[in-house]
Write a protein that binds this DNA or RNA. Structure first.
Length: 791
RNA sequence: GCGAGAGUGGCGGAAUUGGUAGACGCGCUGGACUUAGGAUCCAGUUCCCUUACGGAGUGGGGGUUCGAGUCCCCCCUUUCGCACCA
């Protein structure tokens, strides 16, 4: 029998996995200490999981990335917090439960049980003693506490407004949950609906959420850019136009005050409140009402499609431009957004594409007030599109000749001095709509009292328990509203008869603070101890998918800032480094899905090939931030490496236990011994670089080279021989933990390899070498010289 | 439309700062050992021409430089995000 065949036979991964998983569990290897030393702490966070089924390849990839880093940090002597939990409330779980006719709670807890077992089998180094389940009262008690704090500080409030409504799920959606005008979860077209809703005033934090992105060098640029654009800050001027006749104010917001002399009409959003106050003539009122109905009945996607022709209706009213006293028509048009600015715009067809199209359609005049430059002029009659760039003002009275920023400043200052305008900053970001008319969520801890109004449930009465009801089907209003035992309460303030708020919270509220609960998960008196949280926080590395860029990853920053403001935390950014891993696709680049039948299960892979091989294949196939096109061929190379190359190396062990902290003197080595020692140190460096960048593929490549080049029979120095072997095992450990631990034991160690330290390269061994530099003249290779590296 | 990435062998990908492009792995080709091998080992593998020498080459075109995958300009393709934000 060949050596390779022997080693394959000996490498019984199932036995090895069981053995070490049990041992690690017994030794509590993954336990984050309760009160860490802040200088030695490492908080490794992965996004907690939505328990909608068992673990899939995406989860697996996410968690093994975090695991490699956690183990690596552990070996470097860090006190590592690497917790896990379940984002257990929410729509998808509820929908899946309804389909199967199982109660959402039963369904969710069952999924958690199965998935937890899978994760434990895959030996992700989570500290399970800190597990958090967001649908259990000991967690959501504190989600409710957060809500009450926000209510008390004026951040949580209730208002009537137009909201995104999913007709299929029969619930409100946050802006972040609407993708291309459709419900993110079920793909149904979202419509606007007027409703009373709870909101979080995240807009109070808009400036800080943008500005503090500059304090996050460890975040990927694309995520920061997405957040900046999502929050969408723009500086401009708010100007009061007036309604002709009544003299009522009609405020507008513009970022182009330099075009204000070109206003030829005004446009109001159909949903704008001010529209109702206008006292239109009956014939116009009727037309406007008809138009309103038509516009609001259109789906979001139709309305927001830039290519559909703009339309609107004249109100019969006129507005006066305060700058020149000109009288212009006032229209209603659904290309104007009610929620942005004042819901009314000044329309400048000559210098705005949308206004141009509208004016052309309805024969409204076009007036040029900006020229491209001093020598080029525009003619309104021959223009085919608006001129939207900056240039000198014309036909603008005293402002003629001013351009760009200067023009904007002059116009703004004038408006302010005359009292009909002021500078204003506007955001695209809207307040976060958090109430959901669904059963499976965290109950909103508010009581509505006819006398006292909105009264928060006192801390002592928390949690407000979500009752286990039989009828949890969505019906357009919260199923809890039909549960009298739940709804009917006495007012905590006056003792009179009162009612609970029937809605539940958006799941994203639950997930906005879970990373804090991990710090102190058993605390019964507080959401977490500030002192303990301050020791662990901020998160040192947060690994998850990029899909959360403008949702969760804004929300958790918002919560952190709020908690800092009210004195519950010291940091004001939750995570110093963010890493987005790529998706796992099938071999053809298609998303894996049950309906396509191309799902590969990490569970069966681990059962067939072993956990270490499966992990290594995933690390090696692509750098962590790129997508992986998974095929079973990915397993071949790493399996050969692990079984045929790495596993037998322990045969070369001579039984000495050299001091692992010491370096050999490179000057005292020569020949093969010298070159393999240099190779070892180069490998140590390359492996560490791979870990730092989470590009384990390069770390593994470096290890493959080292093992390939290692030939014990050429080494006389027994200590050196064993030193190389032991360092190699240590470097493999975070990636293939079971095998490394087994080899470590075979080499004669009793204590875990994860407590044995992490190799540090010997700079002398690397700098001492020379490198060859090509000398080129005119692109031709003329010579090459050897110089010491680093010179 | 706007914004941010990405384009390197048959394939996944190396090459943080400009310095011998293609590390490592897959696949493929040839050989060894074998009754056999889809096992293992050895050798080869960017392309073109070739006995050899040589030439071309990192999406395309231009530029900076002794030297460019890497920096600058234009274009093409592609992925992702936002999408009437006045």
């Amino acid at each position: 029998m060949s050596d390779a065949a022997k080693s394959r036979q000996r490498y019984d991964f199932k036995t090895i996995e069981h053995k070490w998983q049990e041992r690690w569990e017994k030794e509590q290897l993954y336990k984050g200490v309760h009160s860490p030393d802040p200088s030695k702490k490492f908080y490794m966070l992965v996004m907690f999981a939505y328990p909608s089924g068992d673990i899939h390849m995406g989860h697996f990839r996410n968690y093994i990335i975090g695991d490699a880093v956690a183990r690596w940090q552990m070996m470097q002597g860090k006190q590592v917090l690497h917790p896990f939990g379940w984002d257990a409330f929410g729509l998808p779980a509820e929908r899946a439960a309804i389909q199967r006719n199982i109660h959402p709670e039963t369904w969710t807890l069952e999924n958690i049980k199965v998935s937890r077992a899978t994760l434990q089998q895959s030996a992700i180094s989570f500290d399970w003693s800190r597990e958090v389940v967001s649908c259990l009262p000991d967690y959501y008690k504190w989600t409710q506490w957060m809500f009450v704090q926000m209510f008390k500080h004026g951040i949580a409030y209730r208002k009537r407004g137009f909201v995104n409504w999913c007709p299929e799920d029969k619930t409100v959606l946050a802006n972040e949950q609407v993708k291309e005008g459709k419900c993110e979860r079920c793909g149904t077209l979202v419509v606007k609906k007027e409703q009373i809703q709870w909101y979080f005033k995240i807009t109070d934090y808009a400036d800080r959420l943008i500005d503090d992105l500059d304090k996050l060098p460890g975040w990927p640029e694309n995520v920061k850019t997405m957040q900046r654009e999502w929050i969408g800050r723009s500086h401009g001027l708010e100007v009061d136009f007036t309604i002709e006749g009544s003299g009522e104010k009609l405020p507008i917001f513009t970022t182009r005050p330099d075009t204000i002399f070109g206003v030829t009409f005004m446009a109001i959003a159909p949903e704008a409140e001010i529209l109702g106050t206008l006292k239109l003539e009956p014939e116009y009122a009727r037309k406007v009402e008809e138009y309103k109905k038509r516009a609001t009945g259109r789906s979001e996607i139709e309305r927001s499609d830039v290519t559909t022709e703009k339309d609107g209706v004249f109100t019969g009213k006129y507005a006066i431009n305060p700058f020149n006293g000109e009288k212009v028509q006032l229209w209603v048009a659904d290309y104007v957004l009610a929620e942005y600015g004042t819901g009314v715009v000044m329309a400048v067809p000559a210098h705005d594409t949308r206004d141009f199209a509208f004016a052309k359609k309805y024969g409204i005049p076009i007036k040029v007030v900006i020229h491209p430059d001093a020598n080029t002029s525009l003619d309104a009659n021959t223009m085919t599109d608006a001129f939207v760039e900056y240039g000198p003002m014309v036909n603008s009275g005293q402002f003629n000749g001013l351009a760009g920023e200067k023009a904007i400043d002059a116009v703004s200052d004038f408006a302010a001095s005359q009292g009909f305008g002021k500078r204003k900053v506007n955001f695209k970001l809207k307040d976060w709509s958090i109430s959901r008319q669904r059963y499976w969520g965290c109950p909103i801890p508010i009581i509505h009292c006819p006398k006292c109004g909105q009264v928060p449930v006192p801390d002592n009465d928390l949690p407000v328990i979500l009752p286990r009801v039989k009828d949890y089907m969505p019906k357009g209003r919260s199923p809890l509203a039909d549960v009298p035992e739940y709804m009917e309460v006495t007012c905590p303030s006056c003792g009179g008869k009162a009612e609970r708020d029937p809605d539940t919270m958006d799941t994203f509220v639950c997930s906005s603070w879970y990373f804090l609960r991990y710090c102190d998960p058993q605390n019964e008196r507080e959401p977490f101890s500030r002192e303990i949280a301050d020791r662990w926080m901020p998160v040192d590395l947060y690994v998850g998918g990029v899909t959360h860029a403008t949702g969760h990853l804004i929300y958790f920053r918002f919560f952190t800032k709020f908690l800092k403001d009210i004195g519950w935390l010291s940091c004001d950014e939750p995570a110093t480094r963010l890493f987005n891993h790529g998706m796992v696709m099938d071999a053809h680049g298609e998303v894996m899905s049950k309906s396509k039948g191309n799902v590969v299960s990490p569970i069966s892979l681990m059962a067939e090939r072993g956990v270490d091989v499966t992990r290594l294949a995933m690390y090696f196939t692509a750098p962590s931030d790129k997508e992986v096109l998974w095929s079973s061929e990915s397993l071949i190379g790493v399996e050969k490496f692990l079984i045929n190359k790495l596993y037998p190396i322990v045969n070369g062990f001579r039984g000495t236990h050299p001091d692992l902290k010491q370096h050999f003197n490179v000057a005292g080595l020569d020949g093969y011994e010298r070159s393999i020692y240099v190779k070892l140190n180069q490998t140590i460096k390359r492996v560490a670089e791979g870990f730092e960048r989470l590009q384990f593929n390069t770390s593994i490549a470096a290890l493959m080279e080292l093992v390939r080049d290692f030939e014990p029979e050429k080494i006389q120095n027994e200590d050196l021989n064993d030193y190389i072997l032991l360092k190699t095992i240590q470097m493999v450990a975070p990636l293939a933990p079971h095998l490394a631990e087994e080899l470590w034991e075979m080499a004669g160690f009793c204590e875990s390899v994860f407590r044995s330290g992490w190799p540090v390269h010997d700079p002398a061994a690397i700098i001492g070498e020379t490198i060859e530099i090509a000398v080129q003249v005119n692109g031709k290779l003329r010579d090459s010289i050897n110089v010491p590296a680093g010179s």
